[in-house]
């Protein structure tokens, strides 16, 4: 299959309206829903199980959390703009927006680690200090790993993977769209993580 592509690699399937990669990515996201769902379930269980600090006793910084929320939302917009630019055959702009997304996600991770994790660990709030911090580190850490994975993929498309744009712009744009779907999902998870951990 090296020379010719499998059916529906590029053109959408008439029934599902998706090409292979997009369908596959959505299925992957469905499984991610179950992964984070199990963790949210664990969080609710631990919290209602008793022996959990009441509202306000744990002290995650709401301003830092809100700033990071803004950063992620903005990165979602730059991501979708990157796809739209490639779709409009403007690779220069597309690369610019993709780069912006990478920088924003690095900013997110930097703030998360420098001003939150290290700060909390310095204050003695390690994962073994309390189940609240345990589940907090676990879920935000897993989310952070997802961000990191997204950054790696985007850097790949910016640097070695960009060659595909010259060979097959449609396939490249599709890949950016899939990356975008993943990225918006990661954003979506954070939209729920933020109130659950910082505000409730």
């Amino acid at each position: 299959m090296s020379s010719e592509l499998l059916p529906h690699t590029l053109e959408p399937h008439p029934v599902t309206g998706m090409y292979n990669g997009k369908f596959g990515l959505w299925l992957f996201l469905a499984s991610e829903v179950m992964l984070f769902g199990a963790l949210f379930s664990a969080y609710i269980l631990l919290r209602t199980h008793g022996d959990f600090p009441a509202h306000g006793e744990h002290s995650l910084s709401v301003p830092i959390g809100a700033i990071n929320t803004f950063i992620l939302i903005t990165s979602s917009v730059t991501m979708v703009m990157a796809w739209a630019s490639f779709k409009l055959n403007d690779p220069g702009k597309g690369k610019f927006y993709l780069m912006a997304t990478v920088l924003l996600s690095c900013a997110f991770l930097f703030i998360k680690i420098k001003f939150e994790y290290l700060h909390k660990i310095h204050d003695g709030h390690t994962p073994d200090s309390h189940t609240f911090y345990a589940i907090y580190y676990c879920m935000t850490g897993l989310h952070g790993l997802h961000i990191l994975g997204g950054v790696v993929v985007m850097l790949y498309f910016l640097l070695p993977g960009f060659g595909l744009w010259h060979k097959n712009p449609q396939q490249f744009t599709n890949r950016i769209e899939c990356t975008g779907l993943y990225w918006h999902f990661v954003d979506l998870v954070w939209i729920f993580l933020f109130p659950v951990f910082y505000l409730l």
């Binding site: 029934v15 599902t16 309206g17 998706m18 369908f23 959505w26 299925l27 469905a30 499984s31 829903v33 179950m34 769902g37 199990a38 949210f40 379930s41 609710i44 269980l45 209602t48 199980h49």
Partner: peptide, 21 residues
């Protein structure tokens, strides 16, 4: 519709997970 079916199924099982607590 195909995608919605996939998402409805996973949403249902997601709710089931949330029922555990």
């Amino acid at each position: 519709a195909t995608l919605f079916w996939v998402l409805i199924i996973s949403a249902f099982f997601f709710l089931l997970l949330i029922l555990i607590p």
